[in-house]
Design a protein around this nucleic acid. Structure first.
Lengths: 148, 148
DNA sequence: GTGAATGCAAAACCTTTGCAACTGG
DNA sequence: CCAGTTGCAAAGGTTTTGCATTCAC
C-alpha cells in the first residue's frame, strides 16, 4: 500500500506520538501518517477519505478525535479560512498561510526569523490582496483582574 | 428610541448605504445603525437580539443578509476566530484584532502606517501568546494560468 | 411595475457528543 | 485491568436556502 520510506519514517511517527503521551492506536498512527504525507492542507473529510484507503473501517469521529489530539499535542496545526472546514497542516515550523482566492489552495509561507506580517517575501508570482493579522493572548482587563 | 446624535449620524448612515448602491430598507438601515453603535464585535445573533429591540419583527435571515451586504460593500468587517460564530465590526480602518483567551473579548488594534504583524504596539497590559498572519490573494499557478 | 429584500421554516454544513464495545500500556 | 479510544448515530451550533410575500425605487 504505502511503498516508500517505510522503515525510516515509520518509527519516528509512532515515536513522536508516544513522546507526547498519546496512546499509540493504529487509527491515530494512520491518521498522522496520512497527514504527514501531504502538503495540501486537507480538511478533516479529506484526511478521512485518504485514511479510509488504508483503513476502511475508520470513522469520521475518530479522524476528528485524532486530528484534535495531534493539534493539542503540537504535532499539527489547524488552519481556518473564513468559516469553511478547518484544514490541517503537519508543518510545525513557524509559518504563515496564503489563501488563493482563485483556486482555494492554501500555501505555507515560511517567515524567516525577522520576517513580519506585512512585508513578507512571497514566492514568485504570488499576489497579495489582503493581509489579516490576528493576535491571541490575555487582555489588559483580565491581566489586571489576575493581579488581585 | 435612540436619543443621542440623531440628526448628525442618522443621515450619514442611510447615505452611506445608498452611496454603495444598497437599497435603503428599514431593516438594513437598522442593522447598520445597531452595528455602528457598538464596539464589542457582536455575533450575528447578538446583532439580531439588539436589532429586535427596536424592530421586533426582524428575522435572523434578514440580519444575516444585511450583515453580508454590509461586509460585501465595505461598511463592515467580518471577524472569524477559530470556528466560533463570526463577529462583526463597523470599524473600517486598517486594523488587526486581538482575541483574549481568558474573557473571549475581541479588541481592535490599530496599526500605524508602518506597523507590522509581529511587533505591533499593544495597549498596556495586553499580553500576546500567539500571532497568526494569514494572507489572501492569487497564487503563482493561478497568475501563470491567467497569462495564457 | 419590477427586481430586490424580507420572513419563515427547513435544510445544509461542519463538528461534537453519548454511549456501548474494545484495547493499549 | 481500566482509563482512554473507537465507531456509530444522533444532536449541536452556525449559516444558507427555497419560496411566497412585501417593498423600494
Amino acid at each position: 500500500m504505502n511503498g516508500s520510506s517505510s522503515n525510516l519514517s515509520d518509527s519516528p511517527v509512532s515515536a513522536r506520538l508516544a513522546m507526547r503521551g498519546l496512546r499509540l492506536t493504529p487509527q491515530r498512527q494512520h491518521v498522522y501518517e496520512v497527514l504527514v504525507g501531504v502538503r495540501d492542507h486537507p480538511t478533516a473529510e479529506e484526511v478521512f477519505l485518504r485514511a479510509k484507503q488504508g483503513m476502511p473501517e475508520i470513522s469520521m469521529a475518530t479522524v476528528y478525535n485524532c486530528l484534535d489530539a495531534l493539534v493539542r499535542c503540537g504535532l499539527a496545526k489547524q488552519v481556518n479560512v473564513d468559516r469553511s472546514a478547518s484544514r490541517f497542516c503537519p508543518n510545525m515550523s513557524d509559518h504563515d498561510h496564503f489563501y488563493c482566492e482563485r483556486c482555494g489552495g492554501i500555501y505555507d509561507i515560511e517567515n524567516g526569523a525577522g520576517a513580519v506580517g506585512r512585508g513578507i517575501e512571497l514566492p514568485r508570482g504570488f499576489e497579495v490582496t489582503h493581509v489579516d493579522v490576528s493576535l491571541r493572548g490575555v487582555c489588559g482587563s483580565c491581566n489586571d483582574a489576575e493581579k488581585v
